[in-house]
Design a protein around this nucleic acid. Structure first.
Length: 498
RNA sequence: GCCCCCAUCGUCUAGAGGCCUAGGACGCCACCCUUUCAAGGUGGAGAUCAGGGGUUCGAAUCCCCUUGGGGGCACCA
């Protein structure tokens, strides 16, 4: 049931790393397109030449792909060629389109050349501010005669192009917030659509491109609501049909303000580097401002596509809750198949080797063998290092103070560790399985009248350096006989050295 | 200063006039399981549906006002 009349887009500007907010907007556009069988377009708004870099372009495209978000038209790789019949999909390659559109507006007097200098505009703004007036263009160049214009041109002054804002009210039926109407008197006067240097501005290019690419639904953040009337004015002046608008609620910092780098972690890359997986992040992001209206909470990308409705989008902003993200991430990590999980864990293990947090890289087999005891304990992939890093490090620092269980004293601990060491050393060493290690140690506890927890905790700390680990006997198996005995010896020595 | 938007547990949300003595999830607290930590299970605390007026037989749901919060007011996107 593909619907060729529905075309949506994401149009990031490559001036920074992929932002959580951009990813969410891209996701919602993708979800809508896939749900209705429409077309999803990716376009690069790269007219801010001073701040663009291909590295950011790569980061954005790579990040979206990593999340599982794909598009039907646009550049598929950084710096790469376009796919699709409505290209080019980079604004810097569409300069002719903007020039032609600007000329049409100029010819129809819907726009005019403005010779105001930055100094003049700055002075106007200062005066308005002092008078507690809202900033707006005063219209100095709005009604210049042809002679006045040519005179200024003759002086060598390069004009910007301003769009003439007509009086009246502009309104639209927003899919998420119903009817919105704004008096054009509040738009700040005629606005610039082409800079004096000839490069076009956002509110203008976005309309020219969306119209040319036949975008039917503009799904974007609420921060664009105030741009919408300006854009509608341009659509009308250009004679293009106005698309349907859907303004999504913002993603907020914990304090309720618009999510920002200053107050939150906003780069998708950073979440990825911390071991969040695409399934978890996508699931979490989908629920920021949307819900299926059921009591489901673990949904795959495909599940969300099947359930997504623009009309179920929330109006109010949603604070980013990292705790919930971690829980969801853990849920998804638990669902991964062993081989898949090992593949995803490998880079995190390698990173730990590289910066010395662990001494060596475990083999895939070693990691697979460990999954039954670690998979359900990982809120993130990166947590693997904290959880069982002691397995791949030669010297595990053991703090004598934590080595002694609460009910024991150092002497008792020494005695316990010695007895445990003897019991384990008596094991033949041919096999070394959890269900072979536990019974004799429990028998030891029984015989001495100890509490199992005390002895086990002493062994745990002695062999891992930690009080919280995966189940003890599985851990000792992973450690191996020799290292288990060696660490027990070392711990006793540490106790003696006190 | 001006314009616009929003408002259900701490957080994400269900709720589209009676099914709501407001449901779920995260987080929190107990208990169970248990060698620690998780996971899982059970139960609990937690929202006078921001406040006030209407409309209606009946309002979290519709209207108005107030308050609070947010977004935007560039030759940025």
């Amino acid at each position: 049931m593909p619907d060729p009349t529905i075309r949506v887009r994401i149009a990031p500007s490559p001036t920074g790393q992929l932002h959580i907010g951009t990813a969410r907007t891209a996701l919602f556009n993708f979800l809508y397109a896939r749900h209705v069988g429409g077309t999803f377009v990716f376009r690069l708004e790269d007219t801010d030449v001073a701040r663009n870099t291909t590295a950011y372009e790569e980061d954005i495209i790579g990040g979206l792909h990593w999340l599982g978000i794909t598009w039907d038209e646009g550049p598929d790789v950084a710096g790469g060629g376009d796919i699709g019949a409505y290209g080019p999909y980079r604004q810097m390659e569409r300069l002719d389109w903007y020039r032609a559109a600007a000329e049409r507006l100029l010819a129809a007097d819907d726009a005019y050349p403005c010779f105001c200098t930055p100094e003049e505009l700055e002075a106007d703004r200062k005066a308005q501010e002092a008078a507690k007036q809202p900033p707006r263009y005063v219209g100095r160049c709005a009604n210049l005669t042809a002679d006045e214009r040519s005179a200024r041109l003759a002086e060598g002054r390069r004009p910007a192009t301003r769009f003439r804002v007509r009086p009246g009210v502009v309104g639209w039926d927003d899919v998420v917030r119903d009817r919105i109407e704004i008096d054009t008197a509040n738009l700040g006067g005629d606005f610039v659509i082409v800079r004096a240097d000839g490069t076009p501005l956002y509110n203008f290019t976005v309309v020219v491109d969306d119209a040319a690419m036949e975008i039917s639904h503009v799904i974007r953040g609420e921060d664009h609501v105030s741009n919408t009337p300006k854009q509608i004015l341009i659509y009308e002046a250009l004679g293009h049909p106005v698309p349907v608008f859907a303004h999504l609620p913002l993603i907020l910092n914990p304090d309720g303000t618009k999510m920002s780098k200053r107050k939150s972690q906003t780069a998708v890359d950073d979440y990825r580097a911390q071991g969040f997986i695409r399934e978890g992040l996508v699931n979490y992001l989908a629920y920021l401002g949307w819900s299926p209206g059921t009591e489901e909470d673990i949904l795959s990308l495909d599940d969300v596509v099947a359930r997504f409705e623009l009309t179920k989008v929330q109006k109010g902003g949603a604070r980013f809750d990292r705790e919930r993200l971690e829980w969801l991430n853990g849920q998804w990590i638990r669902k991964l198949a062993p081989d898949d999980l090992v593949d995803r864990l490998r880079p995190f293990l390698q990173a730990a080797v590289d910066d010395g947090r662990i001494g060596r890289m475990p083999t895939d087999d070693e990691v697979v063998a460990l999954l039954p005891i670690v998979q359900e304990r990982l809120p993130t992939l990166a947590a693997i290092v904290d959880l069982v890093g002691f397995l791949w490090t030669d010297d595990v620092p053991v703090d004598p103070a934590v080595l002694v269980p609460k009910r024991w004293d150092p002497a008792a601990t020494r005695e316990g560790l010695t007895a445990a060491r003897d019991v384990l050393a008596a094991h033949d060493g041919v096999t070394w399985e959890a269900d072979e290690l536990e019974p004799p140690l429990r028998a030891l506890v029984e015989e001495r009248g100890w509490k199992a927890g005390d002895l086990f905790m002493a062994i745990r700390v002695a062999t891992t350096g930690r009080t919280a680990t995966p189940p003890l006997f599985d851990t000792l198996v992973a450690l191996g006989r020799e290292r288990t005995l060696a660490r027990l010896d070392a711990a006793r020595a540490a106790l003696d050295g006190r």
